[in-house]
Amino acid sequence: MRIVPAPLLQRMIDLLMRRMRHSHPSLFSNLALLDSAVICVKPSDLPHQFVLRFGQGPTSLSLAKPQNPVSDACIKGKLEALLNLLEGRIDSDMLFFSRDIEITGDTAVIVGLRNTLDREEINLLDDITAMSGPFGGPARKMVSILNNAAQRINQRLANIYEESHPPSADWQNVQHERDELRNEVQALKTRLAKFETRQKRTEAAAQ
């Protein structure tokens, strides 16, 4: 992506948006139902930022010219996470819990957009494959790179889970010990709390 010059990227975005207006008309009519808003999309691993406008008036996606464009809200995260979100492949709350995406500004605007996107079954590759003209080729290549990236992120999440849940007997022992220690700490805490409470009562009675 880094090698894509800004003007070329903007032309590709324009073509993609035109294509999506054809393939997902209800997405655009639903976006028009929301309150007018400007969202800054910041892929943390790209040199570019994007500005998404929707609500009353036409929906548009453009490259942000100044470094910090004026917006109602910002959404920040790795491009892979953002694309997965767009296609509804990963749960956004999960990305939020895990801090893979961060949002700032008017949260209602982001929630409205998220819910509206989620109404639509979007497959970017299909839309881009259907694109013709001089950008069809490079765009398809770009998407296949992104798709691989998306698979990688899913794989990474699965790996993280497996790493933290190895089925070995050792690990089970560790877990067992941890649970026992936890219970013991809790029991001690309870005893301490009871002691403190008694102390407080005695002090209060002495006054």
């Binding site: 801090r99 961060e102 949002i103 700032t104 500004g105 008017d106 949260t107 209602a108 982001i110 929630v111």
Partner: peptide, 14 residues
């Protein structure tokens, strides 16, 4: 309600 929720970044903290 989302209209009343605000997240602020504060030196690495949210």
């Amino acid at each position: 309600p989302a209209s009343h929720v605000v997240y602020k970044e504060d030196g690495g903290c949210m």
